[in-house]
Amino acid sequence: MALIRAFETRVSELYRDGEIPGFVHTSLGQEAVAAGVCGALREDDYMATTHRGHGHVLAKGADVDGMMAELFGRATGLCGGKGGSMHVADPARGILGANAIVGAGMPLITGAGLSSKLLGQGRVAVAFFGEGAVNQGTFHEALNLCAIWDLPVIFACENNGYAEFSANADMTRVASVAGRTAAYGVHAETVDGNDVAAVHEATDRAVERCRSGEGPVVLELMTYRWHGHYEGDAQPYKPEAEAQEWRDRDPLILAERALVESGAATADELAAVRAAAEARIDAATEAARQAPDPAPEEAFAHVFAG
C-alpha cells in the first residue's frame, strides 16, 4: 500500500510537471482494494484492470521500474512504451492489462476463467472495475456467462462512488452493486474497501469458492477516489464534507494503526516502510527519465502476431 501511495503521488506530480504524456488516472485513496485483493492471489492467477489500474498492477507484482518507464513511454517500460498508463500489462504475472474501455475487462477475464477451467489451469481470474462499469452491458453479460459456466472469476468492484464525474446514486436506482448482482444468482459481498484486512479476508473467501468450483463471486469494495477522474480534474461535483470524511479514513493510516495496535509493527518500522517506498519510486523515476525512447521501427512491430 505504501508503494502504491508513493507511486501514485509521484505520478500525479510528474504528470502535472509535464514529464508523463497522455492521460493519467490515479488510485490515491483506494490502495487497500489493490493490496487486499491481489494479496490473496497467487502469482499465476489472472487479473484484468481498468484505466485506473496502477495500484492493481503493482500489487499483482509488476516491476516498479517497468511500470514507471511505461508511464514515461520508454523502451524499458513493461510494454516497450507502446501501452502507457491505461494499457500496462505483464502477462508473465497474470496481469492481462489495464484497459481504456470502461467495462471491457470483464468479458476478457471471463475468457481467462474459461481457459483456466477448460485447460485445468487451476487459476482464479479477477476483474477490477468501478461501479460506473456496472451500467455497461459487459458487466451483465460477463457475469451471466461466468454464472452459467461456473467459472472461477472474481468480479472486484471498486465502488468509489463516482463514474468519472457522476455520482453513482444519480445513475442507477439500485446503488448497491451487490444488490444488482442478486439477479444473476451469484454470491456477492459488500466490504469496507478502505480496510485492507477485510478486503483480504473477503478475497480469501472468494478465491476459496472459485478454486472449489462454485463459480463466480462479486466483491463490492466500498472506497473513495481522492483525486479527480483524471489528473487535473478539479472535481467541482464532489461535496467537500464528503471528500474530507473519506480522507479521514485514509486506508494506509488505518492499516498502519491496526498494525501498531496489534503489535505486529512499530511506528518506526512503518515509517521505514514508507521511506523505502519513496526511495524505490525515486530510483524508478530517475531510471525512467534516463531510459531511451523506443526505436522508430518499433511503431511497426507487433501489429500482427508471430
Binding site: 484484468a48 481457459s115 485447460l119
Partner: peptide, 22 residues
C-alpha cells in the same frame, strides 16, 4: 452461448490470451 455477443466474443478474446484458440 446466450444471445450475448459482447460477452461471449469478449470471453473468446480473453480465452485466446490465456491458452485457448477459440
Amino acid at each position: 452461448t446466450p444471445i450475448s455477443e459482447m460477452g461471449y466474443v469478449g470471453a473468446g478474446v480473453g480465452a485466446a490470451m490465456t491458452g485457448l484458440r477459440p
